[in-house]
Design a protein around this nucleic acid. Structure first.
Lengths: 231, 231
DNA sequence: TCGATGCTTCGGCTATCATCGAACTATGAA
DNA sequence: TTCATAGTTCGATGATAGCCGAAGCATCGA
């Protein structure tokens, strides 16, 4: 009768799995490109473009054009709050995502999240860094300690002071979608992943579009020596 | 593919206009019947039944069966909070609300619900009985206290021990049609209404099919003395 | 017991919309 | 310029799901 479709339209936007995946990917607070969001949602760029246009029209996200990229971020912290509220209701109702694909185990173990390491190993790495007091975390903010800087220089030949970036934090907690815990993002997370690749400890999967990261036997050993679960 | 609470399923439930209208109708905190919700959403009872089943499965609403009616309410204040958050995002004002209950003021005030007193006075009576500690209520179950038994015997000449019935509880909380709060049902509720009638405090309306209960002037006074709002 | 009412289930129809292939625009790099 | 990458638009397709008529239960009132 009295159709007040305002709230239902917003909810319908979140109600589509692909769009929802995009939104949850943006809940880290970082802006992502259309392609990355497409990848995150597991859909083609064409489909993603359509979804992004709808989300933008609905006022849930805002674009920022940069070169030939289009970065999207949540338009307002309130949006994130509502999404978290929905997560609370969903969790209480016991509605967890259950679908798992064949490639899933490898993806859960180690994968690229934008430009840094994610998955089981990514979460494990940040855990270990916290235990070793290489980083200090207060709420969402993470910063490298003095000892952390020394560690980066000595063990990985990374100059932490050179990682400052105008639009990006050095350290950032990124919510891992498979582990549901944080891993390390930011320029440091990216630099570390770069170093792992350079050292041939790990390599991105050859398959195009794959986010899987494969560790070499030696790489796994060295990685475990630095960030092993026991340390 | 992803782990964690599946918020898109919940959002999709809210995303349908018909279901959304039902939910906003329930945001008053009152329980509504399936038919009322169907009317509110502008759909047939069959369709509404399907929607309500989905909302219930999603944990957004909870049913309470009452005779051949099925009352639904939001399962949790959190649900209302999220809906309000969505309204905030939709950035729209003024939501009207349905009128619930009978138009007839007399019917709202006092009426027969099967065989016991309902309406404003019925709700008021149970409220007062709780305040006077004549009954003890834990969740849905209500039972007469020792003091309650004495009260029934002395004030209303009702032998509570004689009210046990093989197929019916002595005390029962019954959801009130117009007030959307509980009043007292069960054999005790019926016995009390019988007593009110015998004492000529109240009488059912003469009109056939009417459920209105008319209190005499004296009856109203005596009733208020026992179950007045102030006590 | 019978009829009336509230609600649900079932089956089929239909509209919506997510999806992708193909083609197009725009920016950046060589 | 030419090529590559990022992103969009368009059209066709297919699956989902909302919708209602008809029929089936369940409960209440008489």
């Amino acid at each position: 009768m009295k159709a007040g479709p305002d709230i239902s339209r917003i909810a319908a936007l979140v109600g589509d799995p692909a769009r929802c995946n995009m939104l949850t990917a943006l809940m880290t607070g970082r802006a992502l490109t259309a392609s990355e969001l497409a990848q995150e949602a597991g859909i083609t760029p064409q489909t993603a473009s359509s979804h992004l246009a709808k989300l933008e029209a609905g006022g849930l996200i805002e674009p920022e054009k940069q070169g030939r990229h289009r970065y999207y971020r949540l338009s307002d912290p309130d949006v994130a709050d509502v999404l978290e509220g929905l997560q609370g209701i969903a969790a209480r109702a016991g509605h967890m995502r259950v679908r798992t694909g064949p490639k899933d185990p490898a993806l859960r173990r180690a994968r690229i999240c934008y430009d840094h390491l994610a998955g089981d190993l990514g979460v494990q790495m940040l855990d270990s860094m916290r235990r070793q007091k290489l980083v200090r975390q207060s709420k969402q903010a993470i910063e490298l300690t003095g000892e952390g800087k020394r560690f980066m220089a000595e063990e990985l030949q990374i100059d932490a002071d050179a990682l400052t970036h105008p639009r990006r934090p050095v350290c950032k907690a990124c919510l891992d979608w498979s582990e549901r815990r944080h891993h390390l993002a930011g320029t440091l997370g990216a630099a570390m992943m770069d170093r792992f690749t350079e050292l041939k400890w790990a390599a991105r999967d050859a398959a195009p579009g794959s986010r899987v990261v494969n560790f070499s036997r030696n790489g796994e050993k060295r990685f475990a020596a630095l960030f092993g679960a026991g340390e």
